[in-house]
Amino acid sequence: MEIILFIITALIALASALMVITRKSPIASVLFLVLTFVCIAVLYVMLGAQFIAAMQIIVYAGAIMVLFLFVLMLLNLRGNQGWENISPARIGLGFAAAGLLLLVAVAWLKTAGSMEVAGLDPEMGTVSAFGDVLFQRFLLPFEIASVLLLGAIIGVVAMIKRKPLAELGEDKEGKVS
C-alpha cells in the first residue's frame, strides 16, 4: 500500500520536474514547481517528518514560489524564452552531463545498498522532538541563520533601490540646507 503511494507520488514529482525545465512560459514552470514541492511534502510525511512537510508547504510552496510569481509578473517578460533559440548542442550536452551524473549516483546507490534499516520512530518528526534538537544542539546555528536572513533583507533593499544610497543621503542634506 505504502509502495503504491510512493510510486504515484514519485511519478508525479518527476513528471512535473521535467515540465519545469521544458515549459516555454515561466509561469507554467513556477506552477509545476509548486506541484513538485507538494509531492515532496507528501514523501516527507511518509518518512515521518511531519514538521518538515509543513515547512515545505509553508516556506517553499507558499513564500518562495509566491516571490517567484511576483517577480515574474513584475518583469513582464516579452520575446522568446523557449527552446527554439537554444542550440541543439547545448540541449544535448546538458542532458548528457545530467545523465552521466545520474549514472554515477545510481552506481553509488548500488554499492551503498547494504545500509542497515531502522524502524520508523514516530516521535522523531514531531514539533517537540524537532524543537528539542534545534534549540539545544543547534542553538548557535539557529541564531546565525536569523542574522543571515536579516543580512539578506538589508542587501535586497539596498540592491533594489533605484538611487545609490550615497546619493540619497546627499539629497536629504541638500533639502535641509
Binding site: V20, I86, F95
Partner: peptide, 10 residues
C-alpha cells in the same frame, strides 16, 4: 537532482 542539473545547463 539530475533534472535540476539539466535545467541549469540547457
Amino acid at each position: 537532482f539530475c533534472i535540476g542539473i539539466a535545467g541549469v545547463l540547457t
